[in-house]
Amino acid sequence: MAKAFQILLFFASVSCITSTVVGQQLHKHFELAESKDIDRIELKVSTKAGKSFLTAVDDAIPVRIFGASENDVAASSFKIEKTHNSQKVDAELTCKSHMGLNFTESVASSFFSSPDQPHDIWQINLSQHQTFDLNLNYLMGEANVDLSKLAVQRLKIKSASADVKLSYNDASMNSVAMDTFFVKVNFGSIEVKDLNYALAKEIIAEVGFGAISIDCGQDWKMNSRVTASVGAGNLNILLPPKEIPVIIRINNSPLCNIKMAENFQKIGHNIFGNQAYVDNPDESMEFLLDVGMGRIIFQNQ
Rank of each mutant, 00 (worst) to 15 (best):
M173Q: 14
L199A: 09
L166K: 12
N135G: 04
N196R: 13
A177K: 06
S159W: 15
E191F: 07
L147R: 15
L136I: 13
D215E: 03
A177T: 14
F209Y: 12
M173P: 14
R154N: 15
Y197L: 14
V192G: 06
M178A: 05
L150V: 07
V192F: 13
L134I: 05
F181D: 09
V176K: 09
A177V: 11
A171F: 05
V185F: 05
N196I: 09
D179H: 12
G217R: 04
A205K: 03
I204D: 00
V207H: 10
F132T: 02
N196S: 13
D215I: 00
A171D: 15
I214L: 13
N135H: 15
D146A: 13
N135P: 04
G210Q: 05
I190Y: 04
A162N: 00
A205E: 04
S148W: 13
C216R: 03
T131E: 06
F187A: 12
K184H: 10
N137K: 11
I190D: 04
D133L: 00
T131P: 01
L150Q: 04
N137T: 05
K201W: 05
D170M: 14
I190A: 06
L150N: 03
A198I: 12
N169T: 15
L195T: 08
K184S: 14
G208R: 07
A151V: 10
L166G: 05
Y138G: 07
S213A: 02
V145G: 07
K184Y: 10
E142F: 08
S213F: 07
G188F: 00
K201E: 12
N186V: 12
N196G: 08
M178L: 01
D219P: 02
L147V: 07
E191D: 04
K158Y: 06
M140A: 14
D215H: 02
Q153Y: 13
Q130G: 00
V176P: 08
V152Q: 15
S159G: 02
F181M: 11
F209H: 06
E206C: 00
N196F: 06
A198T: 15
G210E: 07
V185Q: 05
S172K: 05
K158F: 02
F182Y: 02
A198R: 07
I157P: 01
D146H: 01
K201Y: 07
L195K: 03
L147C: 10
S167F: 01
V183W: 10
T180M: 12
L195E: 05
V207M: 06
K193H: 10
S213Y: 09
A162D: 02
G141N: 07
Q218V: 02
I204P: 00
G217M: 13
Y197N: 11
D179M: 03
S172V: 01
A177R: 03
N196K: 13
D163P: 05
A162L: 10
Y168V: 11
K165Y: 12
N186C: 07
L166W: 01
K201N: 08
F132N: 03
I157H: 01
A205H: 09
C216H: 11
D215P: 01
S172E: 11
F132V: 14
S167I: 00
F132M: 08
E191K: 07
L136V: 11
L134R: 11
V145A: 10
K156L: 09
L195A: 15
M178T: 08
L155N: 15
A200H: 00
S159R: 14
G208C: 00
K158E: 11
D146Q: 02
E202Q: 03
L155Y: 12
V176L: 03
